[in-house]
Computed example of a mutant assay.
Amino acid sequence: MPGGRLTSQERRRIAAGLADGLGYAEIARKLGRPTSTVSREVSRNGGGADYRADRAHRATGRRARRRPSMAVPAATTPAAARRFAEEFAAVLVGTGVPRMAARVFAALVTTDAGALTVADLVGGLRVSPASVSKAVGYLEGLDLVRREREGRHERYLIDEDLWLRTWLTSARTNTALAETARRGVEVFDVATPTGARLDHMRQFFARLGEDMAGGPEGAEDALTVAAALVHAAGPCTAERVARALGWPVDRVAGALRDAEARPDVTDPVAVRHVGSGEYAATARPERLTAAQREALRDCSTILM
Rank of each mutant, 00 (worst) to 15 (best):
R5S: 12
L6A: 09
Q9M: 14
E10C: 02
R11K: 11
R12G: 05
I14D: 01
L18N: 06
D20C: 08
L22Y: 04
A25S: 08
A25P: 02
A28E: 05
R33N: 01
S39A: 14
R40F: 04
V42P: 03
V42N: 04
D50Y: 07
A56Q: 01
R58W: 06
A59N: 11
T60V: 07
R63I: 07
R66C: 12
R67P: 00
P68H: 09
P68K: 09
S69Y: 10
S69G: 14
M70V: 10
A71L: 11
V72C: 04
P73E: 07
A74Q: 11
A74P: 04
A75F: 01
P78A: 03
P78L: 02
A79T: 13
A80D: 15
R82H: 07
A90D: 15
L92E: 11
V93F: 05
V93I: 13
V93E: 14
G94Y: 03
A101P: 05
A101G: 09
A102F: 04
R103P: 01
F105W: 03
A107Q: 07
V109D: 01
T110V: 09
T110D: 05
A113Q: 02
G114E: 01
T117G: 12
V118W: 01
D120A: 03
L121H: 07
G123W: 00
R126F: 07
P129R: 04
P129E: 02
P129H: 01
S131P: 02
V132T: 07
V132F: 08
S133Y: 06
Y138W: 13
L139T: 10
E140P: 02
D143V: 15
V145R: 13
E150K: 15
Y156F: 15
Y156C: 12
I158C: 10
D159I: 12
W163A: 13
L164H: 08
W167D: 08
L168F: 11
T169S: 15
S170G: 15
S170T: 12
A171W: 00
R172A: 15
T173K: 04
T175E: 04
T175N: 02
A176P: 03
A176D: 02
L177C: 05
A178D: 00
R182V: 05
R183V: 11
E186D: 03
D189E: 10
P193I: 14
G195N: 11
H200M: 10
M201R: 00
Q203R: 14
Q203N: 09
Q203L: 12
F204K: 14
F204W: 05
R207L: 06
E210C: 09
M212R: 14
G215M: 05
E217A: 10
G218M: 06
E220K: 13
V225W: 01
V230T: 10
A233K: 11
P235W: 03
P235E: 00
E239L: 02
V241C: 00
R243Q: 13
R243K: 12
G246P: 05
W247T: 03
W247E: 08
W247Y: 12
R251G: 05
V252A: 01
V252T: 10
A255T: 09
A255F: 06
A261I: 00
R262L: 14
P263Q: 04
V265G: 06
V269A: 06
A270D: 07
A270W: 02
G277N: 08
G277D: 06
E278K: 14
Y279G: 08
Y279R: 12
A283K: 11
R284Q: 14
R287Y: 09
L288K: 12
A291E: 09
Q292W: 02
R293I: 05
A295H: 14
A295W: 08
L303E: 02
